[in-house]
Simulated scan of single mutants.
Amino acid sequence: MTPSPEYRHGLTFINGLSHVYHCNHYNAHLQMSVLLGEGVEEGFDPRTLLKTAAADLTAWLRRRGNGNRELLAEFTYCGFGTFKQTGPQLITTPNSHYAQSTYAHGRPEKGCYFNAGFLQGLARRNVTETACRHEGAEIDTFEVGAALPEPAEPFIGDPALSTPPPRFEFDGCDVAVSPVDEDKIVSTVATLPLYGKPAAAQGDGLIPAFGVVLANHYADYYNRISYETYSRMVAAGVPREMAREAFVQCGHVCAFNTFGGIMESPEWYGLVQPMCNSVEDWVHGMVAVINVLGWGTWRVEKLVPGHELVIRIYNSYEGVGYRRLYPQADEKQLSFLALGAVRGLAHLFWKIDIRERPGLDENFYFSVFNSPEGYWQVEQTHAIAAGDDYDRIVTTR
């Protein structure tokens, strides 16, 4: 059975859970950032967190009537790849999203924790990755072990969603109306086949698009692994700014690879670029595309080319997700992905000029895009996590 996404106020739901598109580079960099939490607190194992966060979501879905067949179909539809039973207790992933990219702060290591956790939630047994492409294996292999107890419910609430205001029609907005047709962009991009196809349909369960490999991932997974690690880092004495930046940088990587890839793609030049007369229009066009990704509803509040960009986000998946997992926060700078992505959006236009189609690769990222020269500052002034009506991100140079 093919999952049926439901779209509400900037978020995408599948089987009751919020899903967001992210690329293989973001997922690999985020996983590396979580692993930085190793050793900050006695008894905290980030590798276990990466697995159990996935297992708990699978168990949550299973307890609501989804069988293994439906959940395996969802795994493939969301672009994570495919599983294959190769022995009584052995499972492989012939095609795997998490095998597409790796970021390592040390030597490469096994990296398909999400896949192992997803299987663990299905089987209700411990699942261990025994071979990984990132360590040179030909295929990722998982061994099913001892039975595990049923996990507790991972969530404390389900916050209500707000109705986002129309573009340019909210207090504080001082941006001139743009000729970019957001409704047309949203409706067109929403029809693209951004889902994984099973082998029965001549597919490999992956979503190659815009020069990256996407996954329609679980927002709750991202939020749990990020905030659990961040909170332990801070509790252990790591300065908040340093701990935060480890996760903000993931959004910066995402902007470079995903936003940049989109704006260099034939689809962009066929649909969006003809609407654009200025760099401001390119910003509005990219924000319109972002509003198809399940990240919430983005609105441009202020835009001074080369100097300042202010973005409001209604129903941000990070803010809504934080309140689903935790009580109201006493700090505001918690939408790590959005902080990095808004800074990255500014860098794409005014640190480099994506309109010149410079060609994006890892060397260009480190030597130019992420170099200290011309780096923009970014701050979050409003946060759904802290009780505000929206997230507000300000980036300046």
Rank of each mutant, 00 (worst) to 15 (best):
M1K: 10
S4R: 14
Y7W: 15
R8V: 13
H9G: 05
H9R: 13
T12D: 11
I14Y: 07
L17I: 10
Y21C: 02
Y21M: 08
N24T: 03
M32R: 15
L35T: 02
L36K: 03
E38S: 12
G39C: 01
V40Y: 00
E42N: 06
D45P: 04
P46C: 04
P46T: 02
R47F: 06
L49K: 01
K51Y: 03
A53W: 01
A55Y: 02
T58C: 06
A59C: 14
L61P: 05
R63Q: 11
R63F: 08
N66Y: 12
N66W: 11
R69A: 10
E70K: 13
E70I: 06
A73Q: 09
F75R: 03
F80G: 03
G81F: 02
T82F: 11
Q89C: 07
I91M: 15
T92Q: 15
T93P: 07
T93R: 04
S96F: 02
H97G: 01
T102L: 10
T102I: 11
Y103D: 05
G106D: 07
E109H: 14
E109N: 13
K110L: 11
N115L: 07
R125F: 05
N126R: 15
V127P: 00
T128K: 07
T130G: 03
A131V: 08
G145N: 06
L148D: 01
E150Y: 08
A152C: 05
A152W: 04
I156M: 11
R167M: 10
F170R: 07
D174P: 10
V175Q: 10
S178W: 05
V180P: 00
A190H: 08
T191W: 05
G196S: 07
G196H: 04
K197V: 09
Q202F: 14
G203H: 03
D204K: 07
G205V: 03
I207W: 03
P208E: 06
A209T: 04
H217S: 13
Y218D: 04
D220Q: 13
Y221P: 00
T229S: 08
Y230I: 00
S231A: 09
R232N: 03
V234L: 05
A235I: 00
A236F: 02
C250P: 02
V253E: 01
F256N: 02
G260T: 05
G261K: 12
S265H: 11
E267A: 08
Y269S: 14
L271A: 05
Q273W: 05
V283S: 04
H284L: 13
G285K: 06
V289S: 01
I290T: 06
N291H: 08
G294M: 01
G294Y: 01
G294E: 02
T297E: 14
V304A: 13
V310L: 11
R312Q: 10
S316P: 09
G319M: 09
G319H: 08
G321Y: 09
F336I: 03
A341H: 06
E362A: 12
N363H: 14
V368P: 03
N370V: 00
S371D: 15
Q380C: 07
Q380E: 12
I384D: 11
D388N: 14
D389G: 14
Y390S: 11
Y390V: 09
R392I: 08
I393L: 09
V394T: 11
T395G: 08
